[in-house]
Every structure is written in C-alpha cells, then in structure tokens.
Computed example of a mutant assay.
Amino acid sequence: MSVEMRVDPGAITRLLRLRNGRAGRKLAERTQRVARIAEREAPGSMGDYITWKVIDGPKGLEGVIVCDHPAVRYVLNGTRPHIIRPRRRKALRFEVGGRVVFAKLVHHPGTKPNNFLKRALREGR
C-alpha cells in the first residue's frame, strides 16, 4: 500500500503571504488585544490560563483564544444552587466575617454567568 501526497506550491505561497503578511499580522494583533482584555476581565487567577494563537482554519486564518482553567465552564455558564460536601476530610473549613467555620455540608446558592470572554471580544473590536 502506498500513499501519495502532492503539495500545491501556490497554496503554500498564499498561506505564507496571509500568515506573515499584513492581514495575518493584523489578525494576530487583534487576537492578542482581545486575549489581554480577557486576562484582565477574568476572575481570580483564571486570566493566567488564557492563551491565543492564529491558525489556518477551514475558512482561512482564524484568531483563537483559549482558557484552559479547570473551572472556566462554571464561570462562563454560571451554576445552579447545589450542595458542597467535603471530599478528603470530615468537614469543610472556610472563613465567614473573619471567623473560621467548619461545616459538614454547605448549600451553595449558585453563581450568575460571567462571560468575560464575550465581553473581551466586544471591547476588543
């Protein structure tokens, strides 16, 4: 069994011209600007998990911003009210009004969605 691959020199030239040319540079600048806004808007340390890149997608060059923080989905979409239980200990430990509190479970009220990525995109236009 053999595999044959043909490289279209014209397609490679067009790709290099786009990626390294004015359009590619402008797309990279805009993508980076939106990523920096997203880093600033992200809650807590979530901004440290934001990266960006320019890829050759199915419709041409695309600017891509990625946040790979483990809780990003919960921040973007919000959460319903839920119960939090300890995993490794017998009780949860946290502070309320400067006092340390222990509890076997907590009824969390849920959180509102915080779509900081969408806000960054709007602001970066």
Score class of each variant (00 low, 15 high):
P9I: 07
P9Y: 05
A11I: 00
A11V: 10
I12K: 11
I12F: 14
I12G: 07
T13H: 12
T13W: 10
T13I: 12
L15N: 10
L15M: 13
L16E: 13
L16N: 12
L16T: 12
R17M: 14
R17A: 12
R17Q: 15
L18I: 03
L18Q: 15
R19C: 01
R19H: 07
R19G: 09
R19W: 12
R19P: 01
N20D: 11
N20R: 14
G21T: 07
G21C: 04
R22C: 01
A23D: 14
A23E: 15
G24Q: 10
G24E: 08
R25F: 06
K26F: 09
K26I: 13
K26L: 15
L27W: 01
L27V: 04
L27D: 00
A28P: 03
A28F: 00
A28N: 05
A28R: 06
E29S: 12
E29T: 10
R30F: 02
T31C: 02
T31Q: 01
T31K: 08
T31F: 09
Q32P: 00
Q32H: 11
R33V: 08
R33E: 08
R33P: 09
R33G: 04
R33M: 02
V34E: 01
A35Q: 10
A35N: 02
I37F: 04
A38G: 00
E39M: 13
E39V: 09
E39P: 03
R40M: 06
A42N: 04
G44I: 00
S45G: 14
M46G: 02
M46W: 03
G47P: 06
G47D: 06
G47S: 01
D48C: 01
D48W: 05
D48T: 07
Y49S: 14
Y49W: 13
Y49I: 04
I50E: 06
I50N: 00
I50M: 03
T51E: 10
W52I: 01
K53R: 12
V54D: 01
V54A: 05
D56Y: 14
D56W: 11
D56T: 11
G57E: 03
P58K: 12
K59A: 15
G60M: 01
G60V: 07
G60C: 06
G60K: 03
G60S: 09
L61D: 06
E62M: 11
E62P: 09
G63Q: 02
G63A: 08
G63T: 10
G63P: 01
V64D: 04
I65C: 07
I65A: 04
V66P: 00
V66K: 08
V66H: 07
V66D: 02
C67H: 09
C67T: 03
D68L: 02
D68A: 07
H69R: 09
H69A: 14
H69I: 05
P70S: 09
P70A: 08
A71G: 13
A71W: 13
V72E: 09
V72N: 00
R73E: 14
R73D: 13
Y74K: 10
Y74F: 15
Y74A: 14
V75T: 11
V75M: 10
V75E: 05
L76V: 12
L76K: 14
N77V: 08
N77L: 13
G78N: 04
G78F: 04
G78E: 05
T79H: 06
T79G: 10
T79K: 07
R80K: 15
R80M: 12
P81Q: 09
P81D: 08
P81A: 15
H82N: 04
I83K: 13
I84G: 03
R85T: 12
R85Y: 11
P86A: 02
